[in-house]
Design a protein around this nucleic acid. Structure first.
Lengths: 349, 349
DNA sequence: CTGAAAGCGCTTACAG
DNA sequence: CTGAAAGCGCTTACAG
């Protein structure tokens, strides 16, 4: 037997490393298979003496029930899947954790994976989870066509979308109120005297980005202000592009006096640009982030509640599995404006 | 058939929602079971015409292979598990993502879960993953006794510990150089004229906390400075306790002129305390964090590389599974001091 | 090129 | 209280 990387002898060459099965335990304990099953699953109807013999055999052999086999026979995996964009994004940590806690409370294990914002990878992952027969799926969609899930949903896989709605299928969705949040944030800047307000957001094919843009336009219209094209930048939110967009808005004969940032990555980049900018510029960002209050000025944000998004979605998923939900719904969670200084700066005209 | 929460009819009442099996596909296509298996798995030896008939049946029935059954027969799940402390902690995001990418490159799915720093929950999770017959386990340990894993390792489960070593078993571990990093960070403060330097860290039963404390002591000793008990605080790193510890060190007749913070949560709390403090106090923190450079002053840190920790651990795991690793090792990744201002403040004596 | 039989490790339904 | 037989949905080993 080879010495393993763990100093404990390993037998990886065989099936499941040649693990003992219930049959082995039964043989060693001198009982039937079903009796072992009863002991392993804590079912009643085993004399203390028999139980002890079985337990001893289990310990001696290092037996652990193979849940793959169990699942195959029982027909339910007690597992749910979570497809998110990027585990490394701090926004998804609390969301994922909240889904995990709800799942745990319902006796389910959570499998999660990152789509890396790639629609093909989202589909690949979601279908791989279905092949493992997860009971349900919580999806933060990267793509905008989810018809590939129709056979799965028809077959009984519960499905809830979070952060963005499903595309081309009618499914449960739990979202933040992007439109209302952005409108409030921009209205806050207007209330502090700004009219030339820039908007930097994600590609408008992303639902949240489109909604936030719509909120910006609505607030500007409410204030009777015409929006100039030069004030809006919509596209991928990598630092390079955002930096250029911010610098463009802040230069020229009539620069903006305030910026509304469409998500946390944009906000952080804009903060860096403004730190180097000669005149103070007001800033409100969508999404809260750690340390926003420690910057000088503190950053005023429209905060979402990622943990609540996750919790709400997971609870809906289990309600679907209970059979207590019948109609797909779109749930919108409110956002909250947190004033910290950057959004209250007056125009530097 | 009931209308589902997704507007698509769902049949959750039956086994796996009553999904079609290969047998159903075979019957519909008028072929044998094995032929369906060949088509589903892309094996050769099927005429184009037969293949087409099978494909049509698959589409018509909405068939998707049940990987639970496959896994049972094949004896390998192509799945690895990751047990971490808290998905909501930004330190673990990039680590988890790196493990996922390596896993994906090896054709494995990743299942991860949080121990919430609870040793019992760590064990429960790790063993649940073993019951699902993961091929290997990457563990960020919460507990300090991992003998419960011995039967699993013996049975062939590959195991790598990250961030902290295993307790009471000999296993692979990938760590940051906590001792060296802390020593360098404290030496940096000493080089800038400080002698009364505080240390705020986690409970010393946690390996990294003990190592960082040891680094602090070593640097102080190298400088010929006696450490006073009042300069050290070791315990849980919730904001309340850290705040009190910092305030205590900064008051009294001979307050510290600099603080070394043992992890990112401590650092952030200390920054808040210092922001309200009348005199400037130097600060070096273990762990880098987003926006550390945007604070005024920027926060000097001893940076780890969480993504590299994850990548290294996952690669070692797959090396174990290849059979190419034989001896358990402890790998220490270097840390990097990043000077940003807070660690270069002179003593305010 | 194609398929019938056996078996993976459990649970279910049943009989004693 | 206990256990033998059948079966979950696949793949393997084999025969035609």
């Amino acid at each position: 037997m080879p010495e393993s990387a763990n100093g404990i002898a390993r037998r990886p060459e065989n099936r499941y490393g040649n693990r003992p099965t219930m049959k082995d335990v039964a043989a060693r304990a001198g009982v039937g298979l079903k009796t072992v099953s009863r002991v392993v699953n804590g079912e009643p109807g085993v004399t203390p003496d028999t139980e002890r013999r079985v337990q001893e055999a289990i310990e001696a052999l290092g037996f652990r029930r193979n849940d793959s086999a169990r699942v195959l026979r029982k027909g339910s995996t007690a597992t749910i899947g979570l497809v998110l964009e990027d585990l490394a994004d701090p926004f998804y940590g609390p969301l994922s954790r909240a889904v995990e806690e709800v799942s745990r409370a319902h006796g389910s294990l959570l499998i999660n994976g990152s789509s890396a914002e790639d629609p093909d990878r989202e589909q690949e992952l979601a279908l791989a989870l279905c092949a493992r027969r997860v009971d349900g799926l919580v999806i933060i969609p990267a793509g905008d066509d989810h018809r590939y899930l129709e056979p799965e949903i028809r077959a009984g896989v519960a499905t809830v979308f979070v952060d963005r709605p499903a595309g081309r299928i009618d499914a449960d969705a739990v979202l933040s109120d992007s439109f209302g949040g952005a409108r409030d944030g921009v209205a806050h800047l207007i209330a502090h005297g700004h009219r030339r307000i820039g908007f930097i957001g994600d590609m408008p094919r992303i639902h949240t980005a489109a909604e936030r843009l719509r909120g910006y336009r609505a607030a500007m219209e409410d204030a009777g202000t015409d929006v100039e094209d030069a004030w809006m930048s919509l596209g991928v939110t990598d630092p390079e592009r955002v930096r250029r967009a911010a610098e463009d808005m802040l230069s020229g004969p009539a620069p903006v006096t305030a910026i509304f940032a469409g998500n946390n990555r944009v906000t952080v980049t804009v903060v860096r640009v403004l730190a180097e900018h000669p005149r103070p510029v007001a800033l409100v960002g969508f999404d809260d982030f750690e340390l926003a209050d420690l910057l000088r000025p503190g950053i005023t944000v429209v905060a979402q509640d990622p943990a609540k998004l996750g919790r709400t979605a997971a609870e809906r998923l289990f309600q679907q599995l209970d059979g207590s939900l019948v109609t797909p719904e779109r749930i919108e969670l409110p956002t909250r404006l947190i004033a910290r200084g950057s959004g209250e700066l007056p125009p530097a005209d």
